[in-house]
Deep mutational scan, measured.
Amino acid sequence: LRGKKKEELLKQLDDLKVELSQLRVAKVTGGAASKLSKIRVVRKSIARVLTVINQ
């Protein structure tokens, strides 16, 4: 992550946020259990990207 440019990080952040919103919709509509663990992974990925951006 640290080797990427800021523009790439921001694009990745947008993609992750879109994916997270889709997973939340799937959870509300009764999605599979595998998607519940994926939510945690995506949230941590967002946190990692934000950490690198803010450093």
Rank of each mutant, 00 (worst) to 15 (best):
E19W: 15
A32S: 08
K17L: 11
K4D: 01
K35H: 08
D14Y: 14
V25P: 07
K38Q: 04
L1C: 06
T29P: 07
L13C: 00
S45D: 06
R43D: 00
A32N: 03
R40M: 13
D14K: 15
I46H: 00
A26W: 14
D15I: 11
V25Q: 06
K11C: 00
K17R: 08
L23R: 07
Q22E: 06
E7G: 10
V52L: 09
S37E: 06
K27I: 05
D15L: 13
V49F: 07
T29S: 05
L23T: 11
G3A: 03
L10T: 04
K35Q: 12
K11S: 03
Q55L: 08
K6S: 05
G3D: 05
N54P: 04
R40A: 09
S37W: 11
V42R: 00
A26L: 10
R43L: 08
T51A: 11
E7P: 08
D15S: 12
Q22D: 01
I39C: 08
G3N: 08
K17V: 10
S45K: 14
K44P: 01
L16E: 06
A33W: 13
K6L: 13
G31A: 12
I39Q: 00
K11T: 01
A32F: 15
Q55M: 09
R43M: 05
K5N: 07
L20I: 08
A26Y: 05
S45G: 10
T29G: 07
K27C: 05
G3T: 10
Q12V: 14
K35A: 13
V52Q: 10
L23Y: 02
T29I: 15
L10N: 03
R2M: 15
A32R: 02
K38I: 06
V42T: 08
L36G: 02
G30K: 14
S34Q: 10
R43A: 08
L16F: 08
R2P: 03
K11E: 01
V41E: 12
E8K: 15
I46P: 00
N54A: 06
S34N: 11
V28W: 10
K17Q: 03
L9N: 02
K17D: 04
I53S: 00
L9G: 03
A26T: 09
K4S: 08
G30T: 12
D14G: 14
V49Q: 00
A47Q: 12
T51Q: 11
S21G: 08
L50F: 10
K27T: 03
L36V: 01
G31Q: 13
V49L: 11
D15M: 15
K4M: 14
V28S: 06
S37L: 12
L20N: 03
A33K: 11
V28K: 07
L23G: 04
K44M: 02
I46N: 00
G31S: 14
E7M: 15
S45C: 06
K4P: 07
I53E: 00
K35V: 14
G30C: 13
K5M: 15
A26R: 09
E19S: 14
S37P: 07
R2W: 13
A32T: 09
A47K: 09
S21Q: 07
A32M: 14
Q22R: 11
L50E: 00
A33P: 01
R40Y: 02
T29C: 15
Q22M: 09
V41N: 11
R24C: 05
K5E: 02
V18N: 15
K4T: 12
E19I: 15
A33Y: 13
V49A: 08
V41D: 13
Q22C: 06
K27L: 09
L36E: 01
V49E: 00
K38P: 06
I46Y: 00
K27F: 03
K35F: 15
V18F: 11
L20E: 06
S21F: 09
L9V: 09
D15Y: 11
R40S: 09
V41K: 06
L1T: 03
S37A: 13
A33F: 14
S34W: 08
L10M: 11
L50G: 02
L23N: 08
T51H: 08
K11R: 05
K35D: 01
D15R: 15
R48L: 00
V28R: 05
N54I: 14
V18W: 09
L16Q: 05
K44T: 08
A26F: 12
V52D: 05
R43Y: 15
L13A: 03
V18A: 13
G3V: 07
L1R: 03
A26E: 03
V52P: 00
A47G: 09
K6M: 12
I46K: 00
Q55C: 00
D14W: 12
L16T: 04
K6N: 01
L16P: 04
S37G: 12
K6R: 06
I46G: 00
D15H: 15
G30I: 15
L36Y: 01
R43I: 09
A32K: 03
V25C: 10
G30E: 10
Q12C: 11
D15Q: 15
K5I: 15
A33N: 04
K35N: 02
D15E: 13
N54M: 14
S21A: 09
R48Q: 07
L10D: 03
K5L: 15
S45E: 03
I53D: 00
S45A: 13
K27A: 09
V41Q: 10
D15V: 11
V49G: 03
R43V: 10
V41H: 09
Q12M: 15
Q55F: 01
L23P: 06
S34I: 11
G3E: 09
G30Q: 11
S21E: 05
E19D: 03
S37H: 07
V41F: 10
K44L: 02
G30H: 14
I53C: 06
K4G: 04
K35L: 15
D15G: 11
I39P: 00
V49S: 01
R48C: 01
G3S: 12
V28I: 13
I53M: 07
Q55T: 08
E8S: 14
K27N: 07
R48E: 01
K38N: 05
G30Y: 08
S34R: 14
I39D: 00
V52M: 10
T29N: 05
K6F: 12
G30M: 15
K4W: 15
S34E: 10
G3F: 14
K11Q: 02
T51V: 06
A26K: 12
K11M: 02
K38V: 04
S34A: 11
V42Y: 06
K5F: 14
V42G: 06
S21R: 08
L20G: 06
A26C: 12
G30L: 14
V52R: 13
V41W: 14
G30F: 14
L13H: 06
V28M: 13
D14E: 06
K5W: 15
S37N: 08
A32Q: 07
V52S: 11
R2Q: 06
L10S: 06
G3C: 01
R24F: 00
A32I: 14
L20H: 01
K4A: 04
K5Y: 15
Q12A: 14
L9H: 02
R2V: 14
I53W: 07
K17Y: 07
V41C: 10
S34C: 10
Q22V: 01
K44G: 02
Q12G: 09
L10E: 01
V52W: 12
T29W: 14
K27D: 00
K35E: 02
E8W: 15
R48I: 00
I53H: 00
K5S: 07
I46T: 00
K4I: 12
R40P: 02
R40K: 10
K6I: 15
R48F: 00
L36R: 02
V42N: 01
K35W: 14
I53P: 00
L16S: 07
K11H: 05
D14N: 14
L9D: 05
V49T: 05
R43C: 11
G30S: 13
E8M: 15
V42I: 11
K11N: 03
V25H: 03
K35S: 08
V41Y: 08
Q55K: 15
